[in-house]
C-alpha cells in the first residue's frame, strides 16, 4: 500500500488557482520534472516565499476552499508531485484539479471548515508532520512523535480506488 504523509505546507488562502500553482509560461515543457523549480511561483499570499526550504521538504499541502480553480492543466498536480507533495488537504477543490489528482494516484482530501481550522491552528508548531492512513481513512498530526491532532476523512470510492491502484490510465486500460 502507498503511504502518504510527512511535513506540511500551510497555504492559508481560498481560491488558489492553477496559474498560481504553475504559471502558463511553463506549459511548453514536455517533461514533468522541468516544472519542479516553478511550483507556486506566482502565489499571492502574504509572507509566502516560493524559494523557502520548507516548501521542498513538504509532502502534504493544507489549504482552504476551491484549491486548484481555473485551468485544466494537469501540470498543477504534477508540479506538486515532482516536489514530493502527493496529498492536499482542503475545505474543497475545483472539480478538474481534484479529478486530476486522483487520476495521478494523488490524494485530495476534503475536511469540514471546523476540522480544518483546528489543523491550521497548529501551523506555527516546529517539526510538525502528518501521517495519512488510507485503510483507516485517518489523518494524524505529530509533534516530535506525539499525536496532537487526529481526524477521519472520506474520499469517494472512485477516487480512493484510483489512489490505491495508481491512477486512471491503468484502471481504464484494464477495464475498457
Amino acid at each position: 500500500m502507498k503511504s502518504f504523509g510527512g511535513p506540511l505546507l500551510f497555504l492559508d488562502r481560498s481560491d488558489i488557482n492553477t496559474d498560481e500553482i504553475i504559471p502558463a509560461k511553463y506549459l511548453t515543457e514536455v517533461s514533468k520534472e522541468a516544472l519542479k523549480p516553478h511550483l507556486l511561483e506566482d502565489l499571492k499570499l502574504e509572507g509566502f516565499d516560493p524559494s523557502a526550504p520548507s516548501i521542498k521538504e513538504a509532502r502534504v499541502v493544507v489549504t482552504r476552499s476551491n484549491f486548484g480553480c481555473g485551468s485544466s492543466r494537469e501540470h498543477a498536480p504534477w508540479a506538486l508531485e515532482v516536489n514530493g507533495i502527493t496529498a492536499v488537504i482542503a475545505e474543497s477543490f475545483a472539480r478538474i484539479f481534484r479529478q486530476n489528482m486522483f487520476n495521478c494516484g494523488m490524494l485530495a482530501i476534503e475536511l469540514e471548515k471546523e476540522t480544518l481550522d483546528k489543523l491550521f491552528s497548529l501551523q506555527s508548531k516546529e517539526g510538525l508532520s502528518c501521517e495519512i492512513d488510507l485503510e483507516k481513512s485517518q489523518i494524524q498530526c505529530l509533534e516530535n512523535g506525539t499525536v496532537i491532532f487526529s481526524t477521519s476523512y472520506s474520499v469517494d470510492e472512485f477516487g480512493a480506488t484510483l489512489v490505491q491502484s495508481g491512477g486512471w490510465v491503468d484502471f481504464a486500460d484494464s477495464r475498457y
Binding site: Q99, N100, F158, W168, A172, D173
Partner: peptide, 20 residues
C-alpha cells in the same frame, strides 16, 4: 467538459471518460 491530461489520454485511447 474540460479535463486534465490523464482523462484526455484515456479519452484518446478508449473513448471514455468518468464523471460524477
Amino acid at each position: 467538459a474540460g479535463v486534465g491530461t490523464t482523462d484526455l489520454e484515456v479519452g484518446i485511447l478508449k473513448g471514455v471518460c468518468a464523471f460524477r
